[in-house]
Amino acid sequence: MRAWRRVVAVARKDLLLEWRGRDALIPAGSFGLAVLLVLGLVSGGGWEAAPPALWVSLLLAAVVAAGRGADREGEEGTLEALLLYPGSREDLFWGRWLAVCVLLLLLGAGLWGVQVLLFNAPTRGVGVLVLAGLLSAFGLAAVGTLLAALLTHVRAGPLLMPLLFLPATVPVLLAGVRLSEAAASGAPAGPWWGVLAVFDLLFLLVGPALFEVVVEA
């Protein structure tokens, strides 16, 4: 009960700060939108190019959004106070993970809407896309939360974030694109659900455990 209260408190705090400052959603959304527009122009706007464009833009936007919470703590000097509260530090991980999940889902929904308009993409298979988006958000948020904590005290943190985040999340990109294509064409997606599930399981198990080690260091 107390752990759940702590998790919700951290998530609510991050989301409230984001709502008031909008310092993750606006830059991440703008960045994702710019990437989507550029890819739309390059690909000629054919609907076949829509899934890769959507997932690449979402992944790049996630890099910006995932690190913002940790950056804010660093700038305000609140991280140490947060870490010194009694209770497990895993709760802090889950709280931040929950807030990043919400941000990524909002970004994903927004970018998907733009993609439909821009690429004239078919809207069938929305259920598959929603599930794929949820599973992807869980995994991406876990990687982002962990890396943001790892890079908080690193001077080149903002530079290293994409260098570490993007290679680590390639399985999500591939699975997301294949699942979106399958949803649009009505074909079975087969093993790509498994790829997303294994990715999530790995990072949701390893993330909280490593978070404790990373913030202790």
Binding site: R6, A9, V10, T78, E80, A81, P86
Partner: peptide
Amino acid sequence: CVYLGTSPGVYAGLTGFENLCLAADLCG
């Protein structure tokens, strides 16, 4: 144990009430 360092460690984007509610939630 509680440590109060030179930085007050309060969130500028939250009200005083919200900051203390957060602390209450975090320390049960």
